[in-house]
Nucleic acid binder design. Structure first.
Length: 471
RNA sequence: GUCCCCAUCGUCUAGUCUGGCCUAGGACACCACCCUUUCAAGGUGGCGACACGGGUUCGAAUCCCGUUGGGGACGCCA
């Protein structure tokens, strides 16, 4: 039998990291087994489903490269199918109409809670006869078995058994005929031939219900695998207050998709001591049976480390293009300045994200507004005057504005003045960038460009003079 | 409240199924040192955990029970 997995998000929000990891596991599992990965949009909640959310989810999956072999399918396009099955269940006596009002149900649950019981539908419409109440759109409830238990083998959690007594008659169709989650999912999983349902473990309790439905529909059940949830750094359910949770937000913040994927795959899964996994390696090595049962916390630090790893080995052209996007977001005009790919090559060793790379490269396009005072205090001292003037002269006369020549020029100045390279390079660095940290001095010069470099050195010289004048 | 699940360094994890090779390994973060024109990167070292209590056993991180802690589920949401 060919493996078929599915990812079935509801378009009611962003594609958050938890959903992305579930999708990744489904995708990996299907790819590994040469099966199919199906994308299904569960949009039966008209109140909360939005087009914007759907676009965001599709966009996120595309960015991560989690391509579907089939779909996206929309449940709202499949309404007749669910209706047909509801009718059959009704006809077979496996489901019944319930006329209870929401208020009535709420009162019932309150009473149960007050008695210390688990709130469940008590089946009051199960055997009702006589005329239907007027003016009420009944829901349809599944006649769940009242005895025995549902047993199944969870691919990650092992054997599981639930007493039917713990379950109740769940509604499968709302008053307006829309299928509910548990029903739509079951019908579709069967209809689409899904062999492995891999989902978050917040769905474990749905599994026995769905298995009962599958049996009532007379079909063989798929296998189930419930993966643990992803928690925030504080061990609480991951939410916006922890920072970025929507995957596209990571893209905007300058993370590479392969870094996010790598971090996600390691949350709840591992392969020995290995930390770095390419997409191909994940496919080759991943097995849902190796997934842990305990929830894991999302670690922004580790993501940052992974991102730097991937940034460092990424193609400069690609990084350059991404970097250009960052500058655009920052409102910085790159025209006439250093090439993005050069910046990428220079900065990728010293930044964890593209946003950071862009911020650190700002000086290549914009004159710094003010000197960093600590840098001035340390490096733009009177003693810096001579080296600054000497380098300016030599740089001014330089024919070739290339790293090798630039480095030689700076080194020769230091030698001529019998100074350490640092005594020359640091004042120069502050002159060029306004701060004490930047890429290697020849690269910094190259990034800034001849004209800007010379004028900034003049600015620094003026500053040193002003300072010595004061003291 | 009821039901389900989980439990190794701060975090992600190896080891748990098939007890001894574990004076518990790796990674992130953190600290120190080295390298160095700055920042990084890199190198070396350090800090740091079997939640607790009972059993079983010659022997337990590994098996059993309890406690505690955490997560999840109890909708005409998915």
């Amino acid at each position: 039998m060919n493996v078929r997995t599915r990812f079935a998000p509801s378009p009611t929000g962003l594609l958050h990291v938890g959903g992305a990891r579930t999708a990744l596991f489904c995708w990996l599992f299907a790819r590994r087994r040469g099966g199919a990965f199906v994308l299904r949009i569960e949009d039966t909640d008209r109140e909360r489903s939005t087009q914007a959310s759907m676009d965001a989810i599709l966009d996120g999956l595309r960015w991560l490269g989690l391509d579907a072999d089939e779909g996206p399918f929309f449940q709202t396009d499949r309404l007749p199918l669910y209706r047909e099955h509801v009718e059959r269940l009704l006809h077979d006596g496996k489901a019944y109409r319930c006329y209870c009002s929401r208020e009535e149900l709420e009162a019932m649950r309150d009473a149960q809670r007050a008695r210390g019981e688990k709130p469940r539908y008590d089946g009051r419409c199960r055997h009702r006869t006589g005329p239907s109440p007027a003016g009420v759109d009944p829901v349809v409830r599944f006649r769940n078995p009242t005895e025995g238990q549902v047993v199944f083998e969870d691919l990650v959690r092992g054997p599981a058994a639930f007493d039917n007594r713990e379950l109740d008659d769940l509604v499968i169709a709302r008053g307006d005929g829309m299928p509910t989650y548990n029903f739509g999912a079951v019908v579709d999983d069967l209809d689409m031939g899904i062999t492995h349902v891999i989902r978050g473990d917040d769905h474990v309790m749905n599994t026995p219900r769905q298995l009962n439905l599958v049996a009532a529909l007379g079909a063989p059940p798929p296998r189930y695998a419930h993966v643990p949830m992803i928690l925030g750094p504080d061990g609480q359910r991951l939410s916006k207050r922890h920072g970025a949770v929507g995957v596209t937000r990571f893209r905007d913040d300058g993370y590479l998709p392969e870094a996010l994927l790598n971090h996600l795959v390691r949350l709840g899964w591992s392969h020995g001591d290995r930390e770095i996994f390419s997409r191909e390696e994940m496919i080759e090595l991943f097995d849902v049976a190796d997934v842990n049962r305990a929830p894991a916390s999302f670690d922004y630090d580790k993501l940052g480390w992974l991102n730097q790893h991937y940034v460092r080995q990424a193609d400069p052209e690609r990084l350059g293009a991404l970097l250009a996007g960052q500058f655009e977001r920052m409102g910085i005009d790159m025209s006439g300045g250093a090439a993005p790919s050069l910046l990428a090559r220079v900065q990728r060793e010293r930044a964890r994200t593209l946003a950071e790379m862009a911020e650190k490269s700002r000086f290549a396009f914009e004159e710094y507004v003010e000197f960093d005072e600590r840098a001035v205090k340390k490096h733009l001292r009177p003693a810096a005057l001579e080296p600054l003037e000497a380098t300016r002269a030599r740089l001014h006369a330089l024919a070739d504005w290339e790293p090798a020549a630039l480095h030689a020029a700076v080194a020769e100045c230091a030698e001529a003045l019998s100074l350490n390279l640092g005594k020359v390079a640091q004042p120069l660095r502050v002159a060029l960038t306004g701060a004490a940290a930047s890429p290697a001095i020849e690269l910094t010069l190259q990034m800034v460009g001849r004209d800007a470099a010379l004028s900034r050195i003049d600015r620094a010289i003026a500053r040193v003079r002003e300072r010595s004048g004061q003291s």
